[in-house]
């Protein structure tokens, strides 16, 4: 066997040899090979935060699970993207998310087009074993074009990142901590009163659930368009 070309690594994914560029993440390689790894916070075109923990994979010889969205492809790596243990943890993570806020799918603008809902479905979650926490959260409809419903937020911070990294406005951030965290605009002002929001709508499009939506959309009518993101980041890189 000839040695690998410079910058190219070979590693084992689910028992099969795969090759990748050395700067690629295991998640990116998995997607190239049509290996489905569930994700929620990761989105191509945004920085990775490794926060949702759904894409954790097993590494042979290491007791620690690593997020595929952060884990770099390295020579000799041996990862498993599926296992009984991973399935169990992934299910629990989605159950925890469903228990955390008030995700009432049946009356959601994103019903049928929601990442969280389809994750639950594909992981075979037919009920949530943890007691629902039913926190009290408001809906912010102060913006002329968009609505923010904290009840449906999973704190993936895609909105925060796209606004900061792509739009450059940094209207969004996270306030508080732990189970009390919530996304905010400006100084926790009503969104419509935020000085920095450009009404570009990128946050709405990258939001995985019905937490951010366009006004005028009824139940199940909110479909997100995310094609712009890889395109925008690619254009920026080319013109950098």
């Amino acid at each position: 066997m000839s040695p690998a070309a410079p910058g190219v690594v070979t590693f084992v994914m689910d028992g099969k040899d795969v090759s990748a560029r050395a700067d690629q993440t295991v998640l990116a390689v998995a997607r190239e090979h049509n290996v489905a790894i569930p994700t929620l916070c990761a989105l191509e075109g945004l920085s990775t935060v490794g926060a949702c923990r759904l894409c954790l994979v097993e590494i042979a010889g290491s007791p620690k699970l690593q997020p595929a969205c952060v884990l770099k492809a390295t020579e000799g790596l041996n990862v498993s993207t599926r296992s009984e243990r991973l399935d169990k943890y992934r299910k629990m993570i989605v159950e925890l998310l469903l228990s955390e806020r008030n995700h009432v799918c049946s009356v959601c603008v994103s019903n049928g087009h929601c990442d969280l809902q389809s994750l639950a479905q594909s992981l075979g979650i037919d009920h949530v074993r943890f007691p629902y926490l039913y926190p009290s959260f408001a809906v912010d409809a102060s913006h002329a074009r968009f609505t923010l419903d904290h009840n449906r937020c999973v704190l993936c911070t895609r909105c925060v990142r796209v606004c900061d990294e792509v739009e450059g406005a940094h209207t969004w951030d996270v306030m508080g901590r732990g189970i009390r965290s919530q996304v905010i605009t400006g100084l926790k002002q009503p969104w419509g009163e935020s000085e920095s929001c450009t009404t570009c709508g990128k946050c709405v499009q990258v939001c995985p659930t019905g937490a951010l939506s366009e006004k005028g959309k009824s139940v199940a009518e909110m479909r997100k368009r995310r094609d712009f993101l890889p395109y925008l980041t690619q254009m920026r890189e080319e013109h950098a």
């Binding site: 940094h170 951030d173 306030m175 901590r177 905010i184 605009t185 400006g186 926790k188 920095s196």
Partner: peptide
Amino acid sequence: DDDGLRFVAASLRVPYSRVYGVATF
């Protein structure tokens, strides 16, 4: 208070939401 947070944000050139996020963390 909000006035103070705005003053600090503007002076250090940090977005409002980040100042608020830090202050409440």
